Simulated scan of single mutants.
Amino acid sequence: MVVREYLGGTIGYKRLAEKHGVKSKRQIIDWVNAYKKFGMKGLLRKKNDAIYSVQFKLDVLSFMKRTGASLSKTALHFGITNPSVIRGWKKKFLEGGAEALDNPKGRPAMSEKAKNVQKSQKPTQQNEMTREQKLERENELLRLEVAFLKKLRAFQMDPDGYLEKHRQRYHSNSKKNSD
Rank of each mutant, 00 (worst) to 15 (best):
S174D: 01
I29E: 03
H77Y: 13
N116F: 15
R143M: 12
S24I: 03
E138F: 15
K36Q: 14
S72M: 12
S84W: 05
I80S: 02
R131C: 12
M40R: 03
R87H: 11
L144M: 10
R15D: 12
Y52T: 01
Y35H: 08
L142C: 05
E128R: 10
V85A: 07
A114D: 03
K46D: 14
N33F: 14
Y6A: 03
L163E: 07
D30P: 01
F38N: 00
R167A: 11
N127E: 11
V85M: 10
Q126D: 06
I11C: 09
N33I: 07
G42N: 00
Y162V: 04
M64E: 02
N33C: 10
Q133N: 11
N103G: 06
N116A: 14
E132D: 08
A98F: 07
G9A: 14
L142K: 06
A154E: 10
G39M: 09
L61C: 02
K73E: 15
K25Q: 13
K122A: 15
M110R: 07
T124K: 08
H20R: 12
Q133H: 10
S62F: 13
K36L: 15
V146L: 15
P123V: 11
L76K: 00
R167M: 11
S111N: 02
V85G: 01
V32K: 03
L101S: 03
N103F: 15
S72V: 09
L71M: 08
T74S: 12
K90P: 02
L142G: 00
R143G: 04
L152A: 05
G106E: 04
N173R: 05
I80F: 03
T130M: 13
V60D: 00
